[in-house]
């Protein structure tokens, strides 16, 4: 198992190197010398100021945001799948992403005055929106004492549509119609607004999520066996569920505020990981984190490279690359939970 994690970490490291040096504007050796200059705290030749900005202040924060967002979506996907004991769960399908998007667009389009600053109030609104969505879904699905997976997924699809419609309504009735195009780009999921300072909130939230989930790894394993047997294993099923819902909203909310709703990462990554590591969360969680991070980094690399001088929303790439891969995996593998 450790071999896999180490392998993934090495892959992540080299992916970051490739990501910051890929592109016409800066040569590979120039990119490396910029990195070296900063890592050694100013030793070596001072780099060209343009290359320095491109590599250190644009590409590197963007690559790191890709890692954080992708990793966050990976672990939340894995946790949601354990929560509902269904491999179809992910923040996107359960309506959290859509709820977070609806909440964040209220601020993005100037409907609500920013509380402290946009950097703080957007994640808060996204968190509230996501929490609101998942609470509706969960209360509908768990209405009669036990959680019905069918009802959960159907309610998730319904609430996701509702929240999507709300976002569209907010967008189209915006007092700032000139912002429409920007919002569209963000709604489709994009990392193009990454700077060192936009990294702070998602990093904190994802770190909290990762540590909490790792602490909960054993109870999560127990939950895969079903509520009753989990209970008999000494798992506080109800409080774990509550914690998971809040964690999922927190992480998804901060991610959506930074990069919009990027779909399919939370769905595909835990699946791919489980087919290699098995279903134990002590392995699934770290592997999902790194695999999600690397996947999104590569997807963003494609989003940056397809159009010369221009870029695509990365959400389009994750769907186009991710879904066929997922379908193939679904056809081949025959793993189950528990």
């Amino acid at each position: 198992m450790n071999r896999w994690i180490i392998g993934l970490l090495v892959l992540a490291f080299f992916s970051v190197i490739i990501s910051v040096s890929a592109g016409d504007e800066v040569s590979f050796s120039e990119a490396l010398s910029v990195l070296w200059h900063h890592i050694t705290l100013g030793h070596g030749i001072a780099p060209d100021p343009i290359a320095d900005r491109i590599v250190w202040r644009l590409r590197l924060p963007r690559a790191l945001l890709a890692l954080i967002v992708g990793g966050g979506l990976g672990i939340i996907g894995a946790a949601m799948q354990a929560l509902v004991r269904n491999p179809l769960a992910e923040p996107y399908i359960l309506g959290i992403s859509s709820g977070a998007t609806a909440g964040a667009s209220l601020f993005y389009l100037g409907f609500l005055p920013p509380l402290i600053s946009k950097a703080v109030s957007m994640p808060v609104a996204a968190f509230a929106g996501g929490l609101c969505a998942i609470l509706i879904v969960y209360s509908v699905a768990g209405g009669r004492g036990h959680l019905s997976v069918t009802r959960l997924l159907l309610a998730g699809v319904a609430v996701a549509s509702l929240m999507g419609a709300l976002s569209s309504f907010i967008t189209l009735s915006s007092p700032e119609p000139d912002k429409l195009r920007s919002v569209l780009f963000w709604l489709l999921g994009s990392l193009h607004l990454a700077t060192w300072s936009t990294l702070i909130w998602p990093s904190i939230a994802v770190l909290i999520g990762l540590i909490s989930l790792l602490v909960l790894a054993r109870p999560l394993d127990g939950m895969l066996t079903g509520d009753e047997s989990a209970h008999s294993l000494g798992v506080q099923v109800e409080s774990i569920k509550r914690i998971l819902i809040i964690l999922a909203s927190l992480v998804t909310g901060s991610i959506v505020a930074a990069s919009g709703a990027i779909g399919f990462v939370g769905l595909i990554v835990p699946h791919a990981v489980r087919s290699v590591t098995g279903v134990t969360h002590r392995r699934v969680l770290p592997a999902s984190f790194i695999a999600g991070a690397v996947f999104l980094l590569w997807a963003d690399l494609v989003a940056r490279a397809v159009l010369p001088g221009a870029q695509l929303p990365v959400g389009i790439v994750t769907a186009i690359c991710g879904v066929p891969f997922f379908l193939i995996l679904l056809r081949r593998s025959n793993y189950g939970f528990g």
Binding site: G23, E25, V26, I50, R53, I54, L58, R59, F185, H192, R304, L307, P308, G309, A310, Q311, L312
Partner: peptide
């Protein structure tokens, strides 16, 4: 000369 009709530019394109 950008081939896309309505491109979203990258910051690095502008810098460069």
């Amino acid at each position: 000369t950008l081939t896309t009709r309505a491109p979203v530019l990258t910051d690095e394109f502008v810098l460069n």
